[in-house]
Design a protein around this nucleic acid. Structure first.
Length: 615
RNA sequence: GGCUGCAUAGUUCAAUUGGAUAGAAUAUCAGAUUUCGGCUCUGAGGGUUGGAGGUUCGAGUCCUCCUGUGGUCACCA
């Protein structure tokens, strides 16, 4: 049994025996004792004062005497105010170390029989992936891994937004101005090529718009709307969408293309397939570079009509209501939200319609009672409404839906804006961090002896670790500032710092070779740096549980950093492994090193980060 | 304006979910190594946790108000 559980049960028993207080063991909070005090674990006794009718320090004292007397794992205690600090026997720690020494899956839970589906990435197909997608993808990937480690059967998925007006813009621009060029002919990565035509469309559209502003038609609009001369510029800025829909020739063509697409027009579909194909080829490379993959893909072109029948059924059961114009809504007053449209007056679907349909489909197909949507926090309201609707429809998985909402990634200069060209491209960014890693490694020169191929692989691992760790260590719900210079840092609270700890472990173990681990139980005096490290490793299973419960990979990142830091401290503490004073000390420290390495590998793997052999 | 997040060292982030003197990193300054890898370690300075009240043994954490800031309020996705 885990020492925390032992403490909980024993304290619960003691409270009952001493004061007739009934508190379930699981409800008792056990803290790790702060460094500046003696002891391993701390119990706070203030909460018991009312029922026990005694002073907190008195309770702590009595509890301490009782526990040390009755439980063999507790060797000593001390009391400071209402804090009871318990010391755990060395024997417990040594046996713990010996138990987990060869357990590769230490910290992970066995299958719990539940299924979870994690949806992430879900890009539009009209342009390449950028920094915002990277945060999304890393969060999704890591959350999926963490849930798996916590015992869930996980399905990783994305819904590809492959249809709509945006891709039509890219298609139209290429058709009109592309002169038959291809990614190959231009030597461009194929998703960037498609993105190029999207920008090209916007350029032409802007030109058309500004020319139009000089026409009589535009002047009529201005006088109709009674726009004052000093407000004209401002007005046209806001009028852009309206212009696109009502006057623009390019807009008209793009919309016609969309209609043709919906009518299954062969030529448009062929063009659509060609351009999407380019985008997918490009995405595949980016995903591979990021080290992620999916179990299952959904395409919006397949799912956008889903949900309608569910709405019809719901309407018959009067779960929805219909307005005079034929549009269908759900009342969400009991959730303190405004009514939500689920079907347009012309009978076509909106985003919510297909989300209802897709969720239902997924549940039918996989029986996933937990669905996690990794989507930026600008859609908080949408998901709140969606989950409320699912609940009102009586969908059995509604309670298991969770929106893993994350904040925007901003640059030191402010928000990324595609119109201003400040979007940080995913491929460029990865290239840059790897280059920086190579530069730093070459300065140190530790890899000079290795073949070039091996060096390149290590540079890649280091660069990607820097980038991934920098992003994942931040609590998802907070918006973050991405400083490119800091992201490639290799020192301090970074991925490479953690990797370095692992590489040091590897180096020691490599030099050590075979050793007899059974000796470790003979080690007599565990030193403070050793115990701190061991205690931290001991808490790894709970860290995974917490991260899974909160859907928050940043817990794991912070844990890995703390573990690496503690190992570096141990490494520099004068407690040598290879030159240990006794065989028992050597075995103990070797086992400690091996276990640290194992935990670092496991934890970093949950973040999608590798630990190289050398660096 | 309504709703909803966020606000912690100069900067970037933590804080075991209400517990002890709020911790790391970075930057600055000062130190450590005949030793398992210097992408390491030790130390110093740096804080009225945006402000004001409240709840209680105890508040960065919970409640109220205020200030600042982001998101959202489409028959877009």
């Amino acid at each position: 049994m885990n020492i925390l559980n032992i403490i909980q049960t024993k304290v619960s028993d003691a409270l009952k025996a001493l004061y007739q207080i009934d508190i379930p063991a699981q409800k008792l909070v056990i803290n790790v004792t702060k460094k500046e005090f003696d002891g391993d674990y701390t119990i706070v006794t203030f909460p018991f004062t009312k029922q026990a009718k005694k002073r907190p320090d008195q309770i702590a004292e009595e509890l301490g005497i009782f526990l040390v007397d009755k439980v063999e794992e507790f060797t000593d205690f001390n009391v400071i105010k209402g804090f009871l600090n318990l010391s755990i026997s060395d024997s417990y720690w040594k046996h713990f170390l010996s138990d987990i020494l060869n357990k590769k899956d230490f910290g992970k839970q066995g299958a719990n029989g539940k299924k979870a589906l994690v949806e992430f990435s879900s890009p539009n197909t009209n342009k390449p992936l950028h920094l915002g997608h990277i945060r999304n993808i890393l969060l999704g990937w890591s959350t999926a891994k963490i849930l798996k480690a916590a015992g869930f059967d996980v399905v990783r998925t994305q819904i590809v937004n492959d249809r709509g007006i945006a891709i039509c813009k890219s298609m139209l621009a290429w058709q009109k101005f592309g002169e038959g060029k291809t990614p190959e002919s231009e030597g461009m990565k194929s998703d960037h090529f498609v993105g190029h035509w999207y920008v090209n469309f916007e350029t032409h559209f802007k030109e058309e718009y500004s020319n139009w502003q000089q026409t009589d038609e535009a002047k009529n609009v201005l006088s109709d709307k009674e726009v004052k001369p000093e407000n004209v510029v401002e007005f046209f800025k806001k009028y852009k969408n309206e212009y696109f829909n009502s006057f623009s020739l390019l807009g008209k063509e793009a919309k016609q293309m969309l209609l043709k697409w919906e009518d299954q027009d062969e030529e448009v579909r062929a063009l659509w397939n060609k351009m999407n194909g380019w985008v997918y080829d490009g995405f595949e490379v980016t995903y591979k570079d990021l080290g992620v993959e999916f179990d299952l893909l959904y395409y919006e072109s397949d799912t956008y009509l889903l949900g309608k029948s569910l709405i019809q059924k719901g309407l018959e059961k009067e779960q929805f209501f219909q307005k005079d114009d034929g549009s269908i809504w759900m009342d969400l007053e009991d959730y303190k939200m405004d009514p939500k449209l689920v079907l347009r007056s012309d009978g076509t679907s909106v985003y919510t319609t297909q989300d209802i349909g897709t969720a239902h489909l997924r549940y039918e197909k996989h029986g996933t009672e937990n669905m996690i949507y990794v989507v930026a926090d600008e859609q908080n309201h949408h998901f709140k409404a969606l989950f409320a609707i699912l609940e009102k429809l009586g969908e059995p998985y509604a309670k298991g839906c969770h929106h893993l909402s994350y904040g925007m990634v901003n640059l030191p200069s402010g928000r990324m804006k595609s119109r201003e060209g400040t979007v940080v491209d995913a491929d460029d960014l990865m290239k840059e961090v790897i280059t920086e890693a190579a530069k730093a490694a070459n300065e140190i020169g530790a890899l000079a002896g290795l073949p070039e191929e091996d060096q390149k692989e290590i540079f890649r691992q280091i660069g990607m670790a820097a980038l991934k760790f920098f992003i994942i260590k931040v609590n998802p719900k907070k918006s973050m500032i991405f400083d490119p210079t800091e992201s490639v840092d290799m020192q301090g609270q970074t991925g490479p710092y953690v990797q370095n700890a692992g590489v040091r472990c590897r180096s020691i173990l490599r030099k050590l070779g075979e050793y007899d681990s059974s000796n470790l139980l003979d080690y007599t005096e565990i030193q403070a740096p050793e115990k701190e490290l061991l205690q931290l490793i001991h808490s790894y299973p709970e860290v995974i549980q917490d991260a899974a419960k909160d859907y928050d990979p940043s817990h794991i990142a912070n844990y890995c950093y703390a573990l690496a830091k503690n190992f570096h401290k141990f490494f520099n503490s004068g407690l040598y492994v290879l030159k240990a004073e006794t065989e028992a000390a050597k075995s103990f420290r070797a086992a400690l090193t091996a276990t640290t390495l194992n935990t670092l590998i496991s934890g970093m793997d949950l973040l999608g980060i590798e630990i190289p052999e050398r660096m």
